[in-house]
Design a protein around this nucleic acid. Structure first.
Lengths: 146, 146
DNA sequence: CTTGACCTTGCCATGGTTGGAAGGTGCACA
DNA sequence: TGTGCACCTTCCAACCATGGCAAGGTCAAG
């Protein structure tokens, strides 16, 4: 846990400041700090002046997080995934379970959006779309629904 | 803009308090106050003691909002829809445009979720799901993605 | 008069992300 | 050496829709 007292030293050692780590990982500096605050990622080293310094492993973790977010995992889920990733004795069954549970959640969201889409498309089809004030969309919105 | 000084008087006139309006409209009392605060719905009358009182028209508006929320419209969009609803000289073309724009947004979200789902399902298919530590899902998460 | 159900306002939390303010640091150039 | 700019730091607030809780007022029935 050696501390780097000069940014230039750290950079000579191939370490990155937060901006560079952000660029390398695709995670914004803002979010990197946020993930750190929420114990999603390990606290990086600091220079004497308090600048965060990141190594290759740190950037690797950040990319992992980025990818998982792209796949729609929540921060909580990602925390679990990172734990499984770290754990040498991890069982792939655990990861698979989490992935499939997430697929189910995605299915539910997709179905709901498709239901909305269907209703809205139907309504729009019956709407003149001209300058007459009659509009089945508004009529539907204002009607009873149970 | 007559003010009702007793709740009993108001109820005799067929007016509802917030709890009843919530039940009738399907919008929680919490959200009714929230919509009022954000100028989505008109401010209702009050009794002398400060209780909100709602008439049939108010409940009608609330049901409109509820239905629009169910269809995934944002509060901002609903504000627009309510404006169009109120406006006697409204053109149904405006409503249709908003509805179709919303359909497009739904399509985009659906497509994105389906993309996630596809990727995740592929990954899960290649995962043993046993107690060996090898897991293509984690491998993928930790790999580069551009 | 008490009890319980309701109402009021107000503040906090969620989740992921973005924005800004105020101030310190690193570095290149004059 | 100074000056300027880009970067860094922390902290605070906002978005959107909703739920929850607390402290206190009101109403109706017993």
């Amino acid at each position: 846990m050696a501390k780097y007292f000069e940014l230039s030293d750290a950079k000579r050692d191939g370490l990155l400041n937060i901006g560079q780590a952000a660029e390398m990982s695709g995670v914004s500096a803002k979010m990197i700090r946020h993930y750190e605050e929420n114990d999603l990622i390990p606290k990086p080293g600091r220079t004497g002046a308090g600048y965060r310094v990141y190594n290759d492993s740190d950037v690797h973790v950040l990319r992992f997080v980025r990818r998982a977010r792209d796949l729609g995992f929540s921060m909580k889920e990602i925390k679990t995934l990172l734990g499984l990733w770290d754990n040498r004795r991890r069982a792939s069954v655990d990861v698979k379970r989490l992935a499939l549970k997430h697929v189910e959640e995605l299915d539910a969201k997709i179905a709901e959006l498709q239901r909305m889409r269907r209703t809205l498309t139907n309504l729009a089809e019956h709407c003149h779309g001209d300058h007459r004030p009659d509009c089945p969309i508004l009529d539907d919105l204002s009607r009873e629904h149970h």
